[in-house]
Design a protein around this nucleic acid. Structure first.
Lengths: 352, 352
DNA sequence: TATTTGCACTCTCGCGGTGAGAGTGCTAGC
DNA sequence: GCTAGCACTCTCACCGCGAGAGTGCAAATA
């Protein structure tokens, strides 16, 4: 990293803010004029040349203004930016919306994503709350035909799994029900490991054993964040960003659009991201090509884990062009994490 | 409708097919050359003029070829097109994919949508199977704080609803559990109306009454298709269609893209559509501006209800530019409905 | 009368040229 | 070390133009 004099910092900061605002390469004189710098545009140009050496900014072509690089944004986020907290009005509005759906837990995720999308005019993504470890709440078995049954499983975090059971011998609904009754009592609140132990320690009929092992397998798979759904909201907002609808040659633009859409459609990307995130480390910013995903070269992510360590939680965040209002995005994501945490605490009875 | 001589039909059919293939206004001579017509291009031009009178086709500008209008597509779909069934290989491949996830009901919806999207290179949408009338399977109540509890409801169709209960007086978990036990026995398999009746006929404690009425309300709401989720798959495919990425002036194109995206993002649109569909009438085609939705002026839908009348079902279909391979789309949608119906029949034990 | 041939006409689209404007880098002077 | 001045470069929007595609119509033909 090149040495960053206070003046360089001042200029870089102004440049990034201006570019985030206008989406247009920034000229030296614009900086002087709009940001009241106490030195001339020629001096600014010297410094800009320096910043360009350090790969913090670049010129799209000779005699265009400067644009921040990913590295430039990174420096901005780490050292220059300040988080712009939500206004009290905004906070009130958000709280009010959650108040209206307070009883319907299913709505929380959608509302959170939708709030983020609207506040930031970008796409928001979010996984529903999941327990870190699958625990059984209750299950039912329904006879379908002589040799098949239908197993419905409710987990402690509210997830439901449905599964078909293929039976070895014909079994009546009655027998299934009594087996279910007995196992429900034994296995309630138990995790995959505990279920397995209990299965070994008890003398069970073949049906009970089949049901039990199936349950254990499902609980095990549940911990795996892959293959899980996530909500997207505000994808259109992305299309309205100038880099996807106005700026630059048409061909590049539609390529950009395609890439973002592809990423957003991959069901894998958020869960995969989860494993890359440093453990519960507050709001995290991933800028453009910093991650290994090729398709994400021109987008940035602001994400955070929400929930309660070791109990239940998920991921939420926004995705947009690298030219993103980081200060505000971080504030919004942080605030929504907090809201979700409080709601979860209330409904599951954790202490904050 | 203008009189449609066999020759007009022949020409219209060729024109629509050619346009669906090339996405380019079709010239009279192209028709003669590629479709082996037994008369000259001048004759074709006469007929084209006639078809244009009838608003079945139009010219983007003088001296361009012709393009079908929505009305033209409609005539094509109703009278000229033939459904192109899936090849045996394709059928086998699909069956095989479902075979692999046969036990995981959660995967069916996603797989169905994904198959349709891939087969047709367009966006696919699908609602998860829902019972026509909500019926209770089982519920649990968990004490959270002294004055609040957490209600988890499993419906017969596998839906789960979670809801917070605010209690009037402090109640212990034990009392909640016994209330739940009693009510579970009373209300199992019951619909909203039946639940209400049972609540009146039995002498219940205040808690039991609170739980019961909450359950009734939730069951009632469940019938309402609005506010329900639906899956989207293959949205990127739409962007690859020439009308959204290559053809015509850039400005119109991005406007088109924005519109489609907006429609696809509206959570309301599929459920709202459901109510407009003629009852269980096989595969239905909605072309461009035929419906009242303004934003859907340039897209077509091929949708169908799936499931079993009066028991359980949902909606599935594809959405793409009006220039859509209707024959194939209809075949695919029809086939997938059939697959879903069979799967549902197997797992819920209906007779076909 | 129905069709075809021949042809003039119209409109789009892609191309190269061009000039204004923006913004730079450099140099000389303060 | 900073600034004013200036020549230089590159983009971008605009224009004009010619080729080509496809039509509509009139006259010729079966």
């Amino acid at each position: 990293m090149i040495p960053m004099s206070p003046r360089k910092q001042q200029i870089l900061r102004a440049l990034v803010e201006e570019y985030i605002h206008t989406a247009t390469p920034v000229a030296s004189e614009t900086l002087v004029r709009k940001y009241g710098l106490s030195f001339s545009s020629a001096t600014v140009r010297h410094e800009l040349a320096g910043l360009e050496e350090g790969h913090l900014i670049y010129q799209p072509h000779t005699s265009a203004g400067r644009v921040p690089t990913d590295l430039g944004y990174r420096y901005f986020v780490e050292h220059l930016m300040q988080e712009s907290a939500l206004s009290l009005d905004e906070q009130r509005l958000i709280r009010h919306q959650f108040y209206q759906v307070q009883d319907q837990l299913d709505q929380w995720v959608r509302l959170t994503a939708s709030v983020m999308a609207r506040l930031l005019h970008s796409a928001a993504v979010m996984t529903p709350p999941r327990a870190d470890e699958g625990r059984l709440k209750h299950f039912e078995v329904l006879s379908v035909t002589e040799l098949s049954a239908h197993l419905v499983l409710v987990l402690m975090d509210g997830t439901v799994k449905q599964q078909r059971l293929l039976l070895e011998d014909p079994i009546e609904q009655e027998e299934l029900s009594s087996a279910a009754d007995r196992l429900n009592k034994l296995l309630q609140q138990k995790s995959a490991g505990e279920v397995k132990k209990i299965l070994e320690q008890n003398d069970l009929s073949p049906v009970e054993h089949l049901i039990g092992t199936t349950i254990a397998r499902i609980l095990e798979q549940h911990g795996d964040p892959l293959g899980d759904v996530f909500y997207r909201e505000g994808v259109v907002n992305i299309l309205e960003q100038p880099e996807y609808s106005r700026m630059g040659p048409e061909e590049e633009r539609s390529e950009r659009v395609r890439k973002v859409m592809e990423v957003l459609e991959q069901n894998r990307f958020l869960p995969a991201l989860a494993s890359h995130l440093r453990e519960s480390d507050g709001v995290q910013v991933i800028i453009g090509g910093e991650n290994e995903w090729d398709d994400m070269k021109d987008v940035s992510l602001v994400v955070a884990r929400y929930g309660h360590e070791g109990k239940i939680g998920g991921l939420l965040g926004v995705i947009g062009p690298t030219r993103m209002q980081y200060g505000r995005a971080i504030a919004v994501v942080r605030y929504m994490t907090q809201v979700m945490n409080e709601l979860l605490a209330e409904v599951y009875g954790f202490d904050e």
